[in-house]
Design a binder for these strands. Structure first.
Lengths: 144, 144
DNA sequence: GAGTAGTAGTTGCTTTTGTAACTAACAACA
DNA sequence: TGTTGTTAGTTACAAAAGCAACTACTACTC
């Protein structure tokens, strides 16, 4: 019964993607969690601000496709840790420009290096052509 | 600073994997959630039992790499819905063999078809060679 | 066969996420 | 000006996940 096609759980792309995402995320999580007590969303917010410059909360939501409540809570937590600060925008007082503090910048620099190293190490298992296919397809899938 | 390497968030594999996993999982979630009020872990448990046959809770934990508390609660929920039943094992009364009820089997059959269709539709965007690379690399990464 | 260690599975408590409703500010237009 | 609609961000409450302690049982060892 139900076995005719031989379609397996390991062939099911959402499952496979989740497994791979889970393994890698949990491994990298150790860095920002143990060193800075940060959560995943906090790390992403720091990355965005550090890599792409100051922006508002909703900019981060749009770029990273994270829900605004999650971002809101991450910002609050980072503020408490003194990793970022807010500046109200003159022409629209609903918005606040977020920017890393010097400490936050240091945290970013450290984690950024770590992330690059982590990625390189992980991808070293595959040749350049395979890597390119992987990145291209994942990007495409994420845009579905 | 920190821009020398040009390493981008979109180059960071854990991030990319999460985005892709998230998009696809959320899309498929609609099927088991709206039709059967099931959670992701419940769907996975049903898949395992339906596709690979009766097994114990810890078999599922090991195969799917899900924590035992999550599996335990999923089993409970599926039992309440009358999608599965338990049979105590004679030689080791700690273990219970789990098996789908006829209703559970129907649910599996329906979702299994849906999953196969979903996967095929998604992968239709890519040629066979790319698909092969994707599956191979993701499997490899998940085993890291 | 009593004592110790290890495994299967559950439960209670805490942390994190999801959802929806909310406040405050802007914008457009009568 | 005032009313209506929209957007930025927060908060409150509910659902789910993570973690650690627990029960019940098996297995090993003296």
């Amino acid at each position: 019964m139900s076995d005719q096609s031989g379609f397996d759980l390991k062939d099911f792309m959402p499952y496979l993607l989740n497994q791979a995402a889970d393994v890698t995320s949990r491994r990298f999580e150790v860095c920002y969690k143990s060193r800075y007590g940060m959560l995943r969303t906090e790390w992403r917010v720091v990355f965005h601000l550090g890599r792409y410059g100051d922006m508002t909360a909703s900019d981060i939501c749009a770029r990273a496709r994270i829900h605004k409540t999650k971002v809101s809570r991450a910002i609050r937590a980072l503020e408490v840790k003194r990793y970022l600060g807010r500046t109200e925008r003159a022409h629209d007082r609903r918005q606040e420009t977020l920017s890393l503090t010097p400490t936050g910048r240091q945290v970013f620099d450290d984690l950024y290096r770590e992330a690059a190293r982590f990625d390189a190490q992980m991808m070293a298992h595959f040749d350049a052509a395979d890597q390119a296919v992987l990145r291209r397809l994942l990007t495409r899938i994420a845009e579905l």
